[in-house]
Amino acid sequence: MTYEHFNDDLRDTKFPLNHGSGAMPAVGFGTLFRDLSVTTQAVKDALEAGFRHFDCAERYRNEEQVGVAFKEMLDAGKVRREDLFVTTKLWNTNHRPERVAPAFEASCRRLQVDYIDCYLIHTPFAFQPGDNQDPRDEEGHVIYDDGVTLIETWRALERLVDEGRCKSIGLSDITLEKLREIVEVARIKPAVVQVEAHPYLPEWELLEFCKEHGIIVLAFAPLGHGMEPNVLEEPVITQIAQRVQKTPAQVALAWSVQRGVAFLTTSATPSHIRENFDISTLPQRAMVEIQEDITTRIRFNSVVETGVPGFIPRKK
């Protein structure tokens, strides 16, 4: 660790929200864990490491465990609520307008917060309303809900902003085409769009559109989710990592923030949590190399096509 990294403020970058006066920390921590029992400790470790932006969702089924971590750290005076940026998401089964406020309230209650910094529609797909998060017919196909449109759901989110419990609203797992439709008719424009993005899926066109409209792009799977082909084994990235004496993960995450994209990483391992926070500015030459020399293009998660989250395992 060389001394010049100490005054490098890349990890402290905040992107201003286009609605209200807030700003989203570019460096974010995701809370989707396979093993839900690690949630509380991982969130506490992330807070200790310096993370202040946390991405949650009712679909992850662990908002309560996240809330326990927040409460412990807030009560201990280790963090202030106004320094936290808490995002959570409306699940597909709650798209009908009358279901939005109750779903929002339930998330607030589980997270033990009295407001949410950003509320996202988890996917643009409405599923059959009800308590079953994954409604399927006899043949195992998802049961969609054609009784509600995305803009009707969006209007219900706008009302949450009007009421002041929700500072900003946005969309997740959405295509540029669908995003344009909402931006055109929205009274309160989306502040944030969360999509899969990494050096193998840079989403430049979406990013350009979002920058024009002051929308923050928030990347999930910024390291490619450990899938094959592995972003962290990409020669362009490993060579830059050697030159700048950082890990491939730190290079990919720094690239994200420097091009204006906030990111979410998830880990339950304290050393990885610290590594993902400890990013430093890359030289301009490295930024150009990542943009121009990486030609692999791949999407690892098919959620944008179906509304069903899931990474597609690919054989080499």
Rank of each mutant, 00 (worst) to 15 (best):
M1P: 10
Y3A: 14
H5Q: 12
R11M: 10
D12F: 15
T13Y: 03
K14L: 08
P16E: 13
G20R: 05
M24C: 07
A26W: 01
A26T: 07
T31I: 10
F33D: 08
D35I: 11
Q41Y: 01
V43K: 03
E48V: 15
G50Q: 09
F51Q: 02
F54V: 08
E64F: 07
F70Q: 04
F70I: 08
F70A: 08
E72V: 11
A76D: 12
K78M: 11
F85H: 00
V86I: 15
T87Y: 02
T88Y: 03
L90F: 06
T93F: 05
P97W: 02
A101G: 00
F104H: 09
R109T: 14
L111N: 00
Y115P: 04
Y115H: 14
Y119F: 08
F125S: 10
F125Y: 15
A126H: 03
P135L: 12
E138Q: 11
E138D: 14
H141K: 15
D145G: 09
W154T: 12
A156W: 00
L157R: 07
L157Q: 10
L157G: 11
R159Q: 14
E163C: 04
E163H: 01
G164H: 03
R165Q: 12
C166V: 12
C166W: 00
I169K: 03
I169A: 07
D173F: 00
I174S: 06
K178W: 03
K178P: 00
I182Y: 04
I188G: 04
I188E: 04
P190T: 09
Y200L: 10
L201F: 09
P202E: 10
L207G: 10
E208R: 11
C210I: 06
H213Q: 08
I215T: 09
I215D: 08
F220L: 05
L223D: 02
L223G: 03
G224Y: 06
P229L: 07
N230C: 14
V231H: 03
V231Y: 04
T247C: 10
P248G: 12
A252Q: 02
A254I: 01
A254V: 03
W255L: 07
G260K: 01
V261H: 01
A262I: 02
T265L: 05
A268E: 14
S271V: 11
N276H: 14
N276Q: 10
D278L: 12
D278R: 10
S280I: 08
Q284K: 13
I290R: 00
Q291V: 07
Q291L: 09
Q291K: 13
Q291S: 13
I294C: 07
T295C: 01
T295F: 05
T296C: 09
S302C: 00
V303M: 04
V304I: 14
T306W: 06
G307A: 07
G310V: 09
F311A: 11
F311D: 13
